[in-house]
């Protein structure tokens, strides 16, 4: 089964890390991806640029509406994702514990839903 691990952390707090600390953390992430790949669990994943680089799209009354943000209303912002193949939810939780930023923020583990022509899960 596929599980999406969403990585959240406080961007401000992470911005306060020194360049060496930040590079070390990124090195750890590279090693983590390598480990997950060797174990056959890694499907896809990527770190994201900070939220101040983001724009949001909405369609209202058939018209596109583009705004800045998301603004950092919440304490932690989406920072990256790992799409993993795991045997079950507890196996996914075991893998999610290896994601290095879990030490700073939160990793949300969500089962992936399959898009079907009918009878879709809710």
């Amino acid at each position: 089964m596929k599980y999406l691990c969403l990585v959240y952390y406080d961007e401000t707090k992470m911005g306060n890390l020194s360049q060496t600390q930040w590079d070390d953390l990124n090195q750890e992430c590279i090693a983590c991806v390598e480990g997950l790949t060797t174990a056959g669990n890694f499907i896809d994943g990527a770190p994201l640029m900070t939220t101040d680089t983001a724009l949001s799209v909405r369609i209202r009354d058939d018209k596109p509406l583009i705004t800045d943000g998301p603004f950092a209303e919440t304490k932690e912002q989406l920072a990256g994702f790992y799409m993993l193949e795991a045997r079950d939810m507890n196996d996914a939780l075991r893998l999610a514990q290896k994601i290095p930023p879990a030490r700073y923020g939160t990793v949300e583990v969500r089962p992936v839903r399959e898009l079907k022509h009918d009878g879709n899960d809710r």
Binding site: M1, R87, D88, M89, N90, D91, L93, P111
Partner: peptide
């Protein structure tokens, strides 16, 4: 699997996990 056990006991997957 966690999912199969949760389904058998009719409880949500996160609870069982």
């Amino acid at each position: 699997t966690t999912e199969a056990i949760a389904a058998a006991f009719l409880i949500p997957v996160p609870t069982l996990a």
